[in-house]
Design a protein around this nucleic acid. Structure first.
Lengths: 355, 355
DNA sequence: CTGAAAGCGCTTACAG
DNA sequence: CTGAAAGCGCTTACAG
C-alpha cells in the first residue's frame, strides 16, 4: 500500500501539502491543499476582490493549517520596489545619532518601509562597501551621513533610480540632496555669545578639519572673532582628533600658558565633555560654550551652555525628502539647512577673570 | 536605416544592451552584450573558476559599460538564506541600547549579514508586527528585546528555521535562547553596598513591575534587605512608570517625609537621573546607587555610584549565539546571564546623616 | 469568480 | 571551458 512509505520524522515530511522541516510552505502548497489555483491564493493573501466567501474560507484554512507566510522577498523581486531604505551613519553606538536613527525609522514606518542600518566607522571604504551592499539588495533609497569625500561611486546607482539623501555633511564630488545643520551660523552665534560676555581671548578646539561640519564651525569661530574686531592668535585654534588625550592636552595648554584664553568654544560634544573635565580639575571657573547638546549638561556645575542641533529633525527632514523623491518629485538637488539653538545654562555666561 | 529610430532621451533607451532609465541592467543584458551565455556571466560575477581570461575580460567590459550590479534579492530568492538578520529593540533613540545595536551590527558584519532594525516603542503589538514583517522578508535570524509577554506568535517562524535570540528580557510563553543581565544579583549587590555604608532605611524607585528586569531588580533589593536583617517599609518601595514626574514625586516623598530614607536605590538610568536632580535641589547629600551606568556619571558631584551592565556585550553575546544557531548548533534553548559591575564613585559611599 | 502561463533576476543541476 | 533549461516564490497580464 502507499502508506507503507517510511514514517516521516520531524525532519522531512514528503507527504504532499506539508513542507519539510526548515522549509516553508508556499502559495503553491496552500493552493494544492485548498484545491484552488495559485492566483486565488494570491488574491486572498493580498485581500484582492473577486473571491467567493466559501473559497476564501478554504484558502484561509489552508494558510492557517500550513502556517503560511508570504515571502516578501519573492514579491519584491516581481514588483520592483523593495519597500526598504538604507541608513549609513558613523556609529550606531553614538548617542548623538541615535535620535536621528529613530526619526528615520519612524518616517520609513509611515511609508511602510523597513530600515537597514550600518556604521561607516568614519571610514570611506566601509561607507562605500555598505552603500553598494544596500544597493545590491535594491533598497529604494539611501540616507547617508558620509564619511568619505568622493561619492562618484554612487552615480550609477542614483541614475538607476536609488533615491539618495545626504545628512549632516554634504556629498563629495556629486550633486545630491543634502540636509545639514547651520554649523557656520551656530558656531558664530556661540562665539559671539562669549564675546558679548566680555571675552576677547577665546580658544577653539574642534574636530579634524577635513570633516565638513568641523571646518564650518571653525569658519564660524573666525567670523565671530572678526566681526568683533578681535585678533585670533594661532595658539588659540586647535582643530584635530577628538581623542580625549589630544583635547585634554590642548585645553590645558590654552588655559595654563603664560597668556591663557579666558573662554573656550568646543567643536562637538565629545570635545566639550573632555573640556569640562579639564576645567573641573583646574579648580577655577572658565567660560565654555560647546557645539552639540548632551544629556545632563544642565546638571553639571556650572551647567554647560551649548549650541544645540536637532538630530531627530535632521533625520526626519532627510527621510521625508527621500520619500518625496521616491514618490516622483523631481527637480534639482536640494540643500536644506536647519538652524541651531543657543541654550544658555551658566558656563557660557561666566565673565572673564577681572584683570 | 536602422539609425533613423527616434532619438532616445535620458528617459528610455530602447536600444538593445542598454537598460531604460530607472531600470537596471541584468545578467541577461550583460550576457547579450558580451556575446556569452547567462551562466558565464554568473561565473564571472561570482568569481567561479572555469572561464578563459579572454571571455572574462569581455564580460567585465560589458559589466562596466552597463553599470551592472548583481541583484542580491534575486540571488537570495534562489539560494535560500538572505544573509540578513533583524533586531528589534525598545527604542533606537535610547542611548542605552545604542552600543548593543552597534555590537550586533559588528557581529553581523563579520558573518556577511545585513542588519534590519526596528523599535517596538515598548508596545507588544508593534513588536509582533515588526518581527513578522522581518520574517516575511525572510531574515535568517531575529534578535529581540521583547516588549510583550507572549511570543507564541513566533513559534511557526522558529519551527520554519528562523533562529531567534531574546536579549535583556526573556521570551514569554515559549522556550527560546535568551541573553540576560544578572539583574537580581546586581541590584542585591548595589543595595548591600548601601547597607555596608551604614544605611538601614533605603528607598527603591524602579520601573513598572511587569517588566522582567524591573521585577528582578526589586527582588534583588528585597533580598539584600532581608539578608541584612532590615525591615522594608511599604512606603520605601515604589515600582511604576519612569516618567520624571512620578519619580520626582516619589523621591521627594521618601526623602522629605516624617521619617525619611537615608539612601536611594534607583532601578534604571532614567530614574537615576531624575533622582540626581531631586537630590541636587534638596541641598543636602543623600546616598544614591543607580542601576545602569550613564555618561558623565563621574562628572556630577558627588559622582554617581552605579551597578553597570555591559550593553555591548549583551548584544555581542546574543548575536554570536544567533550565528552559532544558524551554523547548525542544535540543543535546548540556552539562557546566558551576564554579570554586573559595581562602580563606586562617591554617591553610594556617603554615610547616613549622623542621627 | 477563477486559473494557466509567463516572467522578475538570479542559481542549480546537467549536458555538451 | 561553456550554456540551455528548470526553478526559487511570488505577481502581472490574459483568458475563460
Amino acid at each position: 500500500m502507499a502508506d507503507t512509505a517510511p514514517p516521516s520524522g520531524p525532519a522531512g515530511t514528503p507527504r504532499s501539502g506539508r513542507p519539510r522541516y526548515g522549509a516553508r510552505p508556499t502559495m503553491k502548497d496552500v493552493a494544492s491543499r485548498a484545491g484552488v489555483g495559485l492566483k486565488t491564493v494570491s488574491r486572498v493573501v493580498n485581500g484582492e476582490p473577486g473571491v467567493t466567501p466559501d473559497t476564501e474560507r478554504r484558502v484561509q484554512d489552508a494558510i492557517t493549517a500550513l502556517g503560511f507566510r508570504r515571502n516578501d522577498s519573492a514579491r519584491i523581486l516581481r514588483k520592483g520596489r523593495t519597500a526598504s531604505i538604507g541608513l549609513i551613519l558613523e556609529d550606531l553606538a553614538d548617542p548623538f545619532y541615535a535620535p536621528l536613527n529613530r526619526a528615520v525609522e519612524e518616517v520609513a514606518r509611515d511609508h511602510g518601509a523597513l530600515l537597514i542600518n550600518g556604521s561607516s566607522a568614519e571610514d570611506a571604504d566601509r561607507e562605500q562597501e555598505l552603500a553598494l551592499a544596500f544597493c545590491a539588495r535594491r533598497v529604494d533609497g539611501l540616507i547617508v551621513i558620509p564619511a568619505g569625500h568622493d561619492h562618484r561611486y554612487l552615480e550609477p546607482e542614483i541614475a538607476a533610480g536609488v533615491a539618495t539623501v545626504f545628512v549632516d555633511r554634504p556629498a563629495g564630488l556629486i550633486d545630491a540632496d543634502a540636509v545639514l545643520t547651520d554649523n557656520f551660523g551656530g558656531a558664530r552665534e556661540g562665539v559671539a555669545h562669549l564675546v558679548a560676555h566680555g571675552h576677547r581671548r577665546i580658544g577653539f578646539i574642534g574636530d579634524q578639519p577635513h570633516i565638513h561640519t568641523a571646518a564650518e564651525r571653525l569658519r564660524g569661530y573666525r567670523a565671530a572673532m572678526e566681526t568683533a574686531g578681535l585678533p585670533v592668535d594661532g595658539s588659540w585654534v586647535s582643530p584635530g582628533s577628538t581623542a580625549p588625550g589630544r583635547v585634554r592636552a590642548e585645553a590645558e595648554r590654552m588655559l595654563t600658558g603664560p597668556d591663557p584664553v579666558t573662554a573656550l568654544f568646543t567643536g562637538n560634544n565629545r570635545v566639550t565633555v573632555t573640556a569640562v573635565r579639564v576645567i573641573a580639575e583646574l579648580g577655577r571657573p572658565v567660560a565654555l560654550v560647546g557645539f552639540d547638546d548632551f544629556e545632563l549638561a544642565d546638571l553639571l556645575s556650572p551647567a554647560v551652555t551649548v549650541v544645540a542641533q536637532d538630530p531627530a529633525r535632521l533625520g526626519r527632514t532627510a527621510a521625508r525628502l527621500l520619500f518625496r523623491r521616491l514618490e516622483g518629485v523631481e527637480g534639482a538637488p536640494r540643500r536644506v539647512e536647519l538652524p541651531t539653538r543657543l541654550v544658555p545654562r551658566g558656563s557660557g555666561e561666566l565673565p572673564p577673570p577681572s584683570a
